[in-house]
Design a protein around this nucleic acid. Structure first.
Lengths: 139, 139
DNA sequence: TCGCTATAGTTTGTACGCAAACCAAATCGG
DNA sequence: CCGATTTGGTTTGCGTACAAACTATAGCGA
């Protein structure tokens, strides 16, 4: 086990991103942008801080991602009236329209990644990954 | 399994990096810098392209990493005499001296990540990760 | 030998990840 | 009610990842 684990994860991450970006080329989406949109598809109009947390990005990085998504007309920013420090992110019609094809794309990508795994193996893998996260103080 | 797998891997990656960088703080090393040094500890004097490949970075990113390691006196660049396009990377005394503490650090970090795993579970996990890499066209 | 092409690295431009500095709005204590 | 602190986001600076353009050197064929 000299693979250092992080090298292994890094290779998978790279392969995953490469597959995603080549398949998502028609929409010109990066993985982080997808993760942000995915969270918005679940609940539109959430605030920046929650979106950043759930998407696994810090607020600094999220600002740039949101700028690009906004420039492309996929989302809009709206100041919250009750608390004017808060910005709420809303999907546009175009942003919402991406959900079906992109979700299907990612589902097939996950299927590709786990091709040949039995349900038990998949479950064991996911459990192992959760355990590692816990061990490393994921929080 | 809506976790998208990539989110799970991303969280682990982040936790791993956080742990590494806090423990490696005395040496001020990033994970990519560590991976490059690790490869050099195995075989000093290899060429840039091989180093980039084995460290999982492209040559473009490696240039920056090597610049920083060189500026800190951990490595030196040397033009190859037979083929003057090639640059060979050599460890300095300081760079070589980092090996024992950093290797020990990473070993304990891997141990932390896999705490509570039986040898069989560890093996199954590593095999699963290799299979995923293959499925995604790791190459 | 001359031009063509391939190869090794560096440079450049975009997109993040992360931490720290910053600004504006809200809240708290006296 | 006012100053200090806290909170929500943006900006900035550094370190990659990745792709594309560029430079220098090598090797190849006519």
């Amino acid at each position: 086990m000299d693979v250092t684990l992080s090298l292994l994860l890094g290779r998978i991450r790279k392969a995953f991103r490469h597959q995603f970006e080549s398949r998502a080329a028609p929409w010109d989406l990066t993985v982080p942008q997808f993760v942000v949109l995915k969270r918005l598809w679940q609940s539109d109009g959430i605030r920046t801080a929650l979106l950043a947390h759930d998407a696994g990005a810090d607020s600094g990085a999220l600002t740039g991602i949101l700028n690009r998504l906004e420039a492309r007309g996929l989302i809009t920013r709206r100041r919250c009236e009750e608390d004017r420090r808060v910005v709420r992110i809303h999907l546009t019609h175009e942003g919402r329209a991406l959900e079906p094809p992109i979700i299907a794309l990612v589902a097939s990508l996950n299927e590709m990644a786990l091709h040949g795994f039995t349900p038990e193996e998949r479950d064991a893998l996911v459990q192992s990954l959760y355990r590692i996260g816990d061990n490393l103080g994921d929080e």
